[in-house]
Amino acid sequence: MDSWIWWLLAAVGLGIPLVLTAMPEFAMFALGAGAAALAAALGAGVVLQFLVFVGISVALLVVVRPVAYRLLQKGPQIRTGVDALPGASAVVQERVDAEGGRIKLNGEIWSARALNPGSVYEPGQQVDVVEIQGATALVV
């Protein structure tokens, strides 16, 4: 049997654990085996086939693997819960000053304080939430 067939069988064999374990490293080795099969089909010797396999596999591991893991670890930048509230607009329900007050934020009543000690906000006025401290919104 020709050596390129053995390399294709190796590529398929490396694809099986890829499917079973979802480890991308197996795909990189399978691609290396596929490149070695191409080299064998083009008439390269056994040593060159092996060097192509190792070279392509290592290159993929060095270049692609860190990029893939960085993208997998990043995840979407979606803010939820209390983290999503800063920057939201609210309507003053009870007078808000440095001591306290109440606002309506996303349909809920929140205790609030003015971020700047001298600021006073009257009922009906629209304010922006700057920060959440515990259950109190700091507004401007």
Rank of each mutant, 00 (worst) to 15 (best):
P117H: 13
V62C: 13
P117L: 15
L71A: 10
E99Y: 09
P117D: 12
N106Q: 14
L60E: 01
L72P: 00
V120Y: 07
F53R: 03
G87C: 07
V96S: 08
V82H: 00
S111Y: 02
G55V: 09
V96M: 11
L72Q: 11
V58N: 10
V52I: 15
L105G: 00
S111E: 03
T80A: 15
S57N: 10
Q126N: 08
A98D: 05
P123E: 07
V64K: 02
V64L: 15
A98C: 02
G124I: 07
S111F: 04
V64E: 03
I56L: 13
F53Q: 01
L72K: 11
R113I: 06
L85I: 08
Q93R: 12
G100I: 04
W110I: 01
V67S: 10
G124D: 04
S57F: 14
I78F: 15
D83A: 12
N106R: 15
P76D: 15
P66K: 08
A114K: 04
A84Q: 03
R65C: 11
G87M: 09
I103H: 01
L105M: 03
A98P: 00
Q77F: 13
A114N: 03
D97R: 04
D97F: 10
V96A: 10
A90R: 02
K104P: 01
P76M: 15
T80Q: 14
Q126V: 14
L61A: 13
D83Y: 06
V67P: 02
L115P: 00
I109P: 00
R95P: 00
P66C: 08
W110Y: 03
V52S: 09
L71I: 05
K74P: 02
V64Y: 05
L72D: 06
D83E: 11
V67H: 12
